[in-house]
């Protein structure tokens, strides 16, 4: 029997495909998410929209709060640690969370290094804005990649940019000759063996999800049609008028993402979505997607 295997880590992500992972801050919200059909919940003290509003340093959550959420649901529970903060990740592993998100939503702890994720038995998910960033994280041991988008905005524009960029860069790599790959890997600053692998297979060696700004069923459909295999919804559910109904609708949208008639039905009568932020309202130093590299 072997436990610390990459296929066991990516295996759980495979089980989450076609699903929705929802940010929750209380056991009550976790139960709403589970009842709506979420495949997993992300336990955190404040959802990204509130972190953005409150300012200050955002850290990993209180273990008690994570334990309370683990008690209240039977689906996998994920939790966030700061970029580079491997001690927070060790605490989350001790709590037996099912996935650790090394997340730009929290204040980075290390501006030079991300966590060496191969050292952990718990799988990691990491954000990326482009293919090179995704491959650096996979090189460090991430078992799941998600777009960063711009968290807490309810604005899908950045998640779309990141998903399109990753997919376009992968298809570009698959057109190259073998003798061109080393130069491209050098330029990208990405591990050569992963660049060569993408050139051959045309896809990431780990599942590819989307996060950062999803607020409606159509947003879910959009990123999934662009290549996302599942979605994370942060502020979009519990900052909307009717979270339970919106949660259920976004879960359905993840299944029927390519069925516009069904989406029309799903999107009807959900009440107001979260208000949201235009990118021009966010000053450069407040852009979460620029945290990490």
């Amino acid at each position: 029997m072997a436990k610390n295997l990459f296929e066991v880590k990516t295996g759980l992500a495979e089980m989450l495909k076609g699903g929705v992972i929802m940010d929750v801050t209380t056991p009550g919200e976790a139960s709403i998410a589970e009842k709506a059909g979420a495949v997993a919940v992300m336990a955190l003290e404040r959802i990204p929209a509130d972190i953005r509003r409150d300012g200050g340093i955002a850290r990993a959550s209180d273990p008690q709060m994570i334990k309370d959420i683990q008690e209240s649901v039977s689906i996998p529970v994920m939790a966030k640690c700061r970029i580079g903060h491997f001690a927070e990740a060790q605490v989350l592993e001790a709590l037996e969370v099912d996935y650790i998100d090394e997340s730009e939503v929290l204040t980075p702890a290390d501006e030079a290094n991300h966590i060496w994720k191969h050292d952990f038995k718990t799988p990691f998910v990491c954000g990326a804005t482009n293919l090179a960033e995704a491959l650096r994280r996979i090189g460090e041991g991430a078992a799941l990649i998600r777009t960063k988008g711009e968290p807490g905005t309810g604005n899908i524009v950045e998640a779309v940019r990141h998903m399109r960029t990753i997919v376009m860069e992968m298809s570009h790599l698959s057109t190259l000759r073998g003798d061109e790959l080393m130069a491209v890997a050098k330029e990208m600053g990405a591990p050569f063996h992963l660049v060569a692998q993408i050139a051959e297979t045309g896809k990431l060696p780990v599942p590819n999800f989307s996060a950062g700004g999803i607020a409606t069923p159509a947003d879910a459909s959009l990123v999934m049609q662009l290549g996302a295999e599942s979605i994370f919804v942060g502020s979009g559910i519990f900052k909307s008028e009717d979270p339970a109904m919106r949660a259920k609708a976004i879960v359905q949208a993840a299944t029927f993402f390519d069925d516009p008639k069904k989406l029309a039905e799903i999107s009807t009568g959900l009440g107001a979505a979260m208000k949201g932020l235009d990118m021009s309202e966010i000053s450069p130093e407040d852009r979460m997607q620029d945290r990490g590299w």
Binding site: M1, A2, L12, E96, Y99
Partner: peptide, 27 residues
């Protein structure tokens, strides 16, 4: 247990007359 207890192992499938099936157990 939770994900940290997920594992892989090799199974024998006597009735399928097959040895060494690589089995992945996730939660």
């Amino acid at each position: 247990g939770r994900q940290i207890e997920s594992f892989t192992t090799s199974l024998i499938l006597p009735k399928l007359n097959y040895h060494d099936f690589h089995a992945v157990f996730i939660r």
